[in-house]
Simulated scan of single mutants.
Amino acid sequence: MRLTKNLLALIVLAIGAVWSLQGIGLVGGSFMTGQSRWLYIGVVAMLAGLAGLIWANRSRG
């Protein structure tokens, strides 16, 4: 189960990174390219992915 949570969090983190890069125009080929809105959405997705990684790997004490 821990592996599944980590993979899901990493996928969300990677998608957020792609969206952010498209938002600032570094990755082209999409309607999102150059739209600053996608930079912010990507940052939120990356933060959610990071929070998911922390949650998946916290100690159960």
Rank of each mutant, 00 (worst) to 15 (best):
T33D: 00
Y40P: 14
Q22M: 09
S59H: 15
S30F: 02
G29I: 05
A14C: 14
S30A: 03
L13V: 09
L26V: 12
R2T: 14
G25A: 04
W55A: 05
I41S: 15
G28E: 06
K5C: 06
I15P: 01
S59Q: 15
G16P: 10
L26H: 05
L47S: 15
L13T: 10
R2V: 12
V43M: 15
L3N: 12
M1Q: 09
R58Q: 12
L13Y: 09
Q35M: 00
V27I: 13
S30C: 03
W55P: 05
L47Y: 02
T4L: 10
V18N: 04
V18I: 13
L39E: 01
M46H: 06
L8G: 01
S59L: 09
G23Q: 05
V43L: 09
G23K: 05
K5L: 10
W55K: 12
G52M: 00
I41R: 12
A17W: 08
G16N: 13
G42Y: 01
L50N: 14
L26N: 07
T33H: 03
A45Q: 04
W55Q: 10
L7W: 04
T33R: 03
G23D: 04
W55I: 07
S30P: 02
Q35D: 02
L13D: 15
L47I: 07
Y40V: 12
L50P: 06
L3H: 14
S30L: 06
L26G: 06
L7H: 00
A56Q: 01
N6E: 10
S59K: 15
R37C: 05
R2S: 07
V44T: 06
I11F: 07
L3V: 12
A45L: 14
T33A: 00
G61E: 06
G49Q: 01
A17Q: 12
V43F: 03
L50G: 13
S59M: 14
Y40I: 15
M1Y: 13
G16S: 00
F31I: 08
Y40C: 08
L7C: 11
N6T: 14
W38M: 03
M46Y: 12
T4H: 06
F31G: 11
